[in-house]
Design a binder for these strands. Structure first.
Lengths: 201, 201
DNA sequence: CAGCTGACAAATATTGAAATCTGTCAGCTG
DNA sequence: CAGCTGACAGATTTCAATATTTGTCAGCTG
């Protein structure tokens, strides 16, 4: 549609693909569409991405990385460990909910990859649990949390909150009870992590 | 296949349908198949069930009720509240895992209904959370749990353990880590429910 | 006459032929 | 000659014709 004199880069292809996916969704988007949007032949796209699947994954990775980075900023905040964990998990739920609402087609792409156990999604999950582990580890050293193994606990927290970040459940995030349900799970988990000589909020 | 002199009852139809579903799975099973298995015309089946969907739901309800009943037996056991909750949740995970493994076609039927937000599945979930509420309530009166609202907490526990009973995740139940992951979530939740003057297990 | 049958219309699923898309590559072009 | 094109084979999707299934009901039957 807009043939540019600029050289064709992986980055430009990713941008165009994101736009095409946004417009057509994962089911209808073709690499011919992407090539057309860039004003090149579809063969050129294959010079930068071996397969259509690789392209979809790269786009999704970029999209997920934006969330990981936003969440990573929270890990560094100067807060009581409990507050930090609360803020981080709220931000995670918020981010996913917003993505599902504002960007349904890209979210659908992400859901498809999740269903296919894509490496990209696994990596995203590992990154998130690594951040969680960091928060827990910090909370332990500061005496706020009592946890044997922060990695195991991080995974447990991630699993226990799955309903609020796993795309499978995206449909239920619109329901008015969703936030209260999230809060209930969060309270329970925080109480479980908290050191015994707890300030009984 | 085996035309009987016996009168056609809802019960007999349910049995035959369960068998047909087991053999063909939810995608292939037809009400003509069910009628053939009973040696009647398919019109007769519609005398007892208004639609095919109603029939599928009735079969699934029966199948789910067997689990609910088995779990209900645990609620009455004479145990420390914490032990009781642990046994109940383990039994829930076990039951689902076994059903997914031993009865894949009926489990698939259940999964389909879950995806369609069927009334039957909602009812099953309500029954299970009611049992959970009962366990928590008992634990509160006996001073073992500290929980503001047992209903809210029951729902939170149910949501937090979703990965280990929601059919969406059935695929992951075979993985060797599954049990350890379940234990980690369970420990965290129990710690969150436990009264402050806890016997530090 | 309660309960079943079987013929039927409408909805849904299957099939197979045509169209489109993916992925490759020889050769063109700036 | 690095990078793009476009023609091509094989894989996949679409589409429309066909077949099956669902759900109804008038009438048969024990």
């Amino acid at each position: 549609m807009a043939p540019t004199t600029e050289t064709l880069t992986a980055e430009r292809i990713l941008e165009a693909t994101e736009e095409v996916l946004r417009r057509h969704g994962p089911a209808k988007a073709t690499v011919v569409d992407v090539a057309r949007a860039l004003g090149v032949s579809h063969g050129s796209v294959y010079r930068h991405f071996r397969t259509k699947a690789a392209l979809r994954e790269a786009v999704t990775k970029r999209w997920l990385d934006r969330t990981s980075e936003a969440l990573f900023a929270i890990v560094g905040r100067d807060r009581a460990p409990e507050t930090l964990l609360r803020e981080w998990l709220c931000a995670l739920f918020d981010a996913k909910r917003r993505k599902a609402g504002d960007d349904p087609e890209l979210f659908a792409t992400f859901s498809v990859l999740t269903g296919e156990n894509s490496r990209v999604v696994d990596q995203h999950i590992e990154e998130l649990t690594a951040q969680l582990t960091e928060i827990l580890r910090d909370g332990i050293t500061r005496g706020a949390f009592v946890v044997t193994d922060p990695e195991v606990a991080a995974r447990a927290v991630f699993h226990a909150t799955g309903r609020f970040h796993d795309p499978t459940y995206a449909g239920s995030w619109k329901r008015p009870e969703a936030q209260a349900e999230f809060d209930a799970v969060l309270d329970l988990l925080l109480r479980g992590l908290r050191a015994a000589d707890r300030p009984q909020h």
